[in-house]
């Protein structure tokens, strides 16, 4: 589904990603862990199409060149980024926002607009999935939301848009254990054999709830180690310094 070959990215002449290789297949969950400043968020930004990066290498999404696509086209093709810091949009209600997103996607696929009753029913169902207060739907996107509500709103949007590949950028950061459980349950219910998740996190704790098939460690702009979920436990126990030492030894 997603194939990343030798992806490099820099901003203001500062090299952040230094040759990333990664393959994600349908039905898989990949966790990307790494210390601060290792390039995790840059990776998600580059995949989602944020401007301002100098990018080289190749990112294929279902065989198509992702880097050539505008961010909205990537979304229509099935990429979704759950933001580490969801953006507040004053003056745009959640409901109108979601209706526009859904209908723009449907337009791209040559489908007619979703009728109002189906839309409202779908909204209700998906909001329940992440236990989001229906009253928040009338309010401006993320404005005045608590940290947990913002993160749940991201997963709610994910549920509405049904992407093929979802990237969760530190969705667990700042969540208490109840909110973490709600968010994870939502994600687990959305998992199926046709979609895939890339979960970026600082904390192994999240991976108790969203169990990954693969764990990758990103350090200094490169994936330095890949393994199964046991790798996450090892990292939790020994810290990243252990890995640094081990890497030096290998060199």
């Amino acid at each position: 589904m997603l194939q990343i070959n030798n992806l490099r990215a820099s901003i203001d002449d500062k090299q952040i990603l230094k040759g990333i290789n990664l393959e994600v297949k349908p039905g898989e969950v990949h966790a990307i862990m790494g210390p601060n400043g290792s390039g995790k968020s840059t990776l998600s930004s580059v995949i989602a199409g944020r401007e301002g990066y100098e990018v080289s290498g190749e990112v294929l999404f279902n065989g198509n060149d992702l880097l050539e696509m505008a961010p909205e086209v990537r979304a229509w093709e099935g990429i979704f980024l759950a933001f580490q810091y969801p953006v507040e949009i004053p003056g745009v209600s959640n409901t109108n926002f979601m209706r526009t997103c859904i209908n723009e996607q449907r337009k791209y696929k040559g489908l007619p607009e979703m009728d109002a009753s189906t839309f409202l029913r779908t909204m209700r169902e998906k909001a329940e999935l992440v236990e989001l207060d229906p009253n928040l739907m009338k309010r401006s996107v993320n404005q005045g939301f608590s940290g947990g509500e913002k993160k749940r709103n991201e997963i709610f949007q994910l549920a509405m848009l049904e992407p093929k590949l979802a990237i969760l950028d530190e969705t667990d950061s700042g969540l208490d254990i109840d909110a973490l459980r709600i968010v994870s349950n939502g994600v687990n219910k959305l998992r199926n054999k046709d979609n895939a998740f890339v979960v970026i996190t600082h904390y192994q704790r999240l991976l108790d709830y969203i169990v990954p098939d693969f764990v990758h460690v990103l350090m200094n702009g490169q994936i330095v180690k890949s393994g199964t979920k046991e790798l996450a436990y090892e990292l939790e126990e020994k810290g990243y310094d252990w890995l640094k030492t081990e890497l030096k030894a290998t060199v």
């Binding site: 990537r74 949009i89 004053p90 526009t100 997103c101």
Partner: peptide
């Protein structure tokens, strides 16, 4: 950028933000 990642194109996104 946030609007674009949700599938709203440049022109429409700008219109939405200005309208808001």
């Amino acid at each position: 950028f946030y609007l674009k990642t949700r599938g709203i194109g440049e022109e429409k996104a700008r219109t939405i933000l200005l309208t808001a």
